[in-house]
Design a protein around this nucleic acid. Structure first.
Lengths: 153, 153
DNA sequence: TCTGAAAGTTTTCATCC
DNA sequence: GGATGAAAACTTTCAGA
């Protein structure tokens, strides 16, 4: 799928505020509401636009503990990696998980309520997991920016 | 603001799919559409619910380069930190930025289109910044999970 | 204070040109 | 791409628990 200038602007806006009406979006980009609707449907069927979600304010949610954990697995069979990924994805508090290059194998962002729950999860995901070679935890002191914004150009 | 069982279920659902109708949400939790709407408005005015956004599919967006960058600043004046944070937040491709404890000062997630733009930004944000002591870049090979889900209980 | 229902308004959707 | 009418969703209001 190829984007023109208007597509870029629409996708940009939608990623910041998806509660705008088709008409309001149209006024911004100089199109009718119908045309905007057609474009949005096109994004959806092309799989570019995945879903609409509500974003909670971390600072306003009681007792949220955010932590970034770097993980390296044992260098043996590749099956370890699938098993580890499975274990991660089974936990809803695993907010983000990235398979990365470099000194570490995975970057995991944990969002838990309270330190007790964080410890419990860290134990389960990193200490008890048989294939984790080493890991280090960085607690988030201030979430300067959070989000899922992706540029389109 | 204090949550009951229904609030938890609503906030959970809304974070996964905010495109459901008030009526559908109500059927899930056993309330009328009006009652659901009242609760959602309450989340908004309490600042718990920040916004509704569209989420793009990273894998379907052409040439997206995701990278996690760890940064440590010089240990001098605290003004360095504000200046660095400012510089980060001025860049839309800084998808996430966390002030963290531990071996590093900041964790930054960059989402750029293409490696050239990544390098350009890395230069500006980390190489040219006068107060960055060291940084290391981990490129994302596979985004196993991305999102902003926060537990509420 | 919170709920459900109904009325009134806005938005979205599908089809027309 | 724009316009239109029908359907759906949302907002407001009101009476009851």
């Amino acid at each position: 799928m190829t984007f023109d200038e208007i597509d870029h602007r629409l996708l940009d806006t939608l990623q910041r505020d998806a509660s705008r009406t088709l008409q309001a979006l149209g006024e911004d980009v100089g199109l009718s509401a119908s045309a905007v609707q057609r474009r949005i449907n096109r994004y959806r069927s092309a799989g570019v636009l995945a879903r609409h979600v509500a974003v909670l304010e971390a600072r306003r949610t009681a007792d949220i503990v955010l932590a970034v954990v770097l993980v390296t697995l044992e260098r043996e069979s590749s099956g370890h990696h699938d098993a580890f990924a499975q274990r991660l994805l089974a936990v809803p508090e695993v907010q983000q998980a990235y398979d990365v290059s470099g000194d570490w194998d995975y970057v995991v962002v944990l969002a838990t309520i309270g330190m007790a729950r964080h410890s419990e999860l860290a134990q389960h995901l990193f200490k008890d997991a048989p294939n984790v070679k080493r890991y280090t935890t960085m607690f988030v002191l201030d979430p300067l920016r959070t989000g899922t914004y992706l540029p389109t150009r």
